[in-house]
């Protein structure tokens, strides 16, 4: 196994051009599990750890190489909250936002946030860069729109970030657990609300009918919140697997969304 450690995006793309089957490695918190299990036997590894460009982070952009340990310090409530739920301190020190995008699991903790704020994803190759909405990038369970010889540069956030955001996630222990349902809710001063759901569909989902309903409520009362909760559950598309049942996930994601919205209304 050969490992190269370029220090620039151009260096990564050069290495990728000469080794199209290379494994691109960031934090390795998903990838190394597969390697250790023998499911992945890379011959050529391109490490991203020394690429400073990927670690850029500002109010409008989060580089693919930004770790959850850093994102825990974000001033955006939901971003800090979701980052705190990722694995253990060791995993948060290694795992990156780009990893969630690369793996594209519907349970990826950062993905409901990116969906809720309508982030766009920037990809880069030798032919230049392209930027696409999150829902064109995340196209199925563990499937994304990344082309060979292309890497994820990062996620762009909108200019007008919502006023309040909240994230919540259910797992069957207090920490270090894969989500069985998660939500991110945003609400701006005009009452416009978005809600994105994780681990209750083949990809991260937006509950558009619930959003529309509650965005029209300037000061949602109990009945409105009940209806919001009901619509979120209805719009989820969960399955039963070894982690939970579809019935529980459907119920729980509605409750989570309502509680997250209530945090945004305070």
């Amino acid at each position: 196994m050969e490992i190269v450690r370029p220090d620039s995006v151009a260096g990564v793309l050069d290495a990728l051009a000469s080794h199209p089957d290379a494994l691109v490695l960031a934090g390795g918190t998903d990838t190394m599990v597969l390697v250790n299990a023998g499911a992945l036997r890379p011959e050529y590894v391109i490490s991203l750890r020394h690429v400073e460009d990927l670690k850029a982070w500002n109010a409008r952009f989060i580089g693919a190489g930004v770790t959850y340990a850093r994102l825990e310090e974000s001033e955006i409530a939901a971003l800090a909250e979701l980052s705190r739920t990722v694995g253990s301190p060791q995993i948060r020190a290694a795992g990156t936002l780009g990893g969630n995008l690369g793996t594209a699991s519907p349970a990826g903790d950062a993905l409901p946030f990116l969906a809720a704020v309508d982030a766009t994803i920037e990809l880069v190759s030798k032919h230049g860069s392209r930027t696409m909405p999150w829902d064109e990038f995340l196209i199925g369970p563990k499937q994304n729109a990344l082309e060979p010889a292309e890497i994820i540069l990062g996620a762009h956030l909108p200019d007008d970030m919502p006023w309040r955001t909240a994230f919540a996630k259910i797992g069957v222990r207090q920490a270090m657990v894969i989500s069985i349902a998660s939500v991110c809710v945003t609400r701006n001063e005009a009452g416009e609300t978005t809600v994105a759901l994780g681990a209750v569909g083949p990809t991260v989902l937006r509950a558009r009918r619930a959003e529309m309903m509650v965005s029209a409520e300037k000061d949602p009362d109990e009945a409105a919140l009940d209806e919001f909760q009901r619509l979120v559950s209805e719009e989820s598309r969960p399955i039963t697997d070894h982690r939970s049942t579809a019935e529980y996930r459907r119920m729980a994601v509605g409750v989570l969304a309502r509680r997250a919205l209530e945090r945004c209304l305070v």
């Binding site: 909250e81 705190r84 739920t85 909240a166 994230f167 919540a168 996630k169 259910i170 797992g171 222990r173 207090q174 920490a175 657990v177 989500s179 998660s182 989570l256 509680r259 209530e262």
Partner: peptide
């Protein structure tokens, strides 16, 4: 939050 049900997942007021 670490002492509440759901822990850091912030599920539970």
């Amino acid at each position: 939050v670490r002492d509440l049900p759901g822990g850091t997942g912030l599920t539970t007021p």
